[in-house]
Simulated scan of single mutants.
Amino acid sequence: MLIFKNLGEMASLEYLYKYDMYFAIFQLTFIALLGYIILSWLFRMWKQYKQLKNDKASAELALLKSKIDPHFFFNTLNNLYGLAIKKSDEAPQVILKLSEIMRYTIYEGENETVLLKDEINYLEQYIEVHKIRYKKTVNITFTKVIEEENISVAPLLFIMLLENAFKHGVESLTNNAYINLELIVKKKTLIFSVENNFEVKENAQTGIGIENLKRRLQLIYPKKHELLIHKDTSVYKTQLTIQLK
Rank of each mutant, 00 (worst) to 15 (best):
K135T: 06
F74R: 12
Y49C: 07
Y126C: 06
Y221P: 00
S58R: 11
H130L: 06
D69M: 02
I132E: 01
L80W: 02
L181F: 10
N6T: 07
Q27M: 07
L161N: 15
G209R: 13
E147Y: 05
E148D: 09
F142S: 12
L219Q: 08
E195Q: 15
L42I: 05
K53F: 03
E199F: 04
A154S: 15
L157K: 14
E149A: 09
L80T: 06
N197D: 09
T76W: 02
E9C: 03
H230T: 08
Y104A: 00
E128L: 09
K186G: 02
H225I: 03
E90M: 03
A57N: 13
I95P: 00
E110N: 03
G82Q: 09
E14Y: 11
H230W: 03
L80C: 02
E9K: 15
R44L: 08
K245N: 09
G209I: 07
K214E: 11
K224T: 10
Q48T: 04
A204K: 15
Y122M: 02
N197V: 01
W46S: 13
N79Q: 07
K65L: 12
Y36T: 11
N175Y: 08
E128G: 01
E211G: 03
L96Q: 10
Y126N: 07
F4S: 13
N164Y: 04
E199R: 08
Q239C: 07
L16P: 00
V145G: 12
T76P: 00
L228I: 12
I37E: 01
I101E: 04
M102L: 09
L181W: 06
A57V: 03
L219T: 12
A204I: 14
F142T: 12
K86L: 05
G109V: 01
F198K: 10
K131S: 07
F72Y: 13
